[in-house]
Amino acid sequence: MKPVNPLWYLAAFLFALGSVMIATVVAAGAWDPVREVTVTPTTVRADAQGKTLVVFTDILQPERNVTCRATGRDKKPVGIPRAALDIKVDNEGNQWHLIGLLDAGANGVRVQCTPRDRRVDNASYAWATVTGFETRANNAKGIGILGLTVAVVFAGYVFWCRRQQRQETAREPA
């Protein structure tokens, strides 16, 4: 039996939609460990080998364009990309806001954050390490891409089957 009914396109669309929804749930779950961390002041070096290094501040300053760097024992600074979400963490009576996330941390890293305007900065900065964030995020990407690919291939197969059926119908003598 070949899928020639046009409702098979709807099935392909629903499969794609379902896979994107599942990928979204998995991606949202990747942020759960970030919400549960215990922050450490930036005066302490971070041991983040094989983990994700997350950076927090107690005062959000989006107008000041704060940039963070991780400097290892080799003295080579690595820029810490901005976080995609503003996640708040309560730790020892303070509320911390996620500002940066470095996927591949290293041992003995010193985290430094400074506003680009170089004025006095009243904010405090802290870091934490998270295990498994990158794996969960990659799993979510994989689920989404695989689901969409399967749906597109199936929709193409439905199109091909419908086209073959029309050609066969057109060749039959009336």
Rank of each mutant, 00 (worst) to 15 (best):
K2E: 08
P3E: 11
L7V: 12
A11S: 06
A11R: 08
A11D: 02
F15K: 03
A16T: 01
L17S: 12
L17T: 14
L17K: 13
S19V: 03
V20Y: 15
M21S: 11
M21C: 10
V26W: 08
V26L: 07
D32F: 07
P33V: 02
V34H: 12
R35V: 00
T38S: 11
P41D: 11
P41K: 04
A46Q: 03
A48N: 06
Q49E: 09
Q49M: 12
Q49K: 12
G50N: 01
T52D: 10
F56A: 01
D58F: 03
D58N: 11
Q61F: 04
P62K: 15
E63A: 13
R64G: 02
V66S: 01
R69K: 07
P77Q: 10
P77V: 04
V78P: 01
G79N: 09
R82E: 15
A84W: 11
A84T: 03
D86T: 10
D86R: 14
I87N: 04
I87G: 03
I87W: 09
K88G: 06
K88I: 08
N91M: 02
N91K: 03
G93K: 02
N94C: 01
Q95L: 05
W96C: 01
H97L: 09
H97W: 08
L98G: 04
L101T: 04
L101E: 13
A104Q: 09
A106L: 09
V109Q: 11
R110S: 10
C113R: 05
D121E: 10
D121Q: 04
A123V: 01
A128Q: 05
T131G: 08
F133P: 07
E134I: 01
T135C: 04
T135D: 15
R136A: 07
R136E: 14
A137F: 13
N139H: 13
I143S: 10
I145P: 03
G147K: 02
L148H: 09
V153I: 12
F154D: 00
F154I: 03
A155L: 07
G156T: 05
F159H: 13
R162E: 01
R163Q: 08
Q167G: 00
Q167E: 12
E168A: 15
A170C: 05
E172W: 09
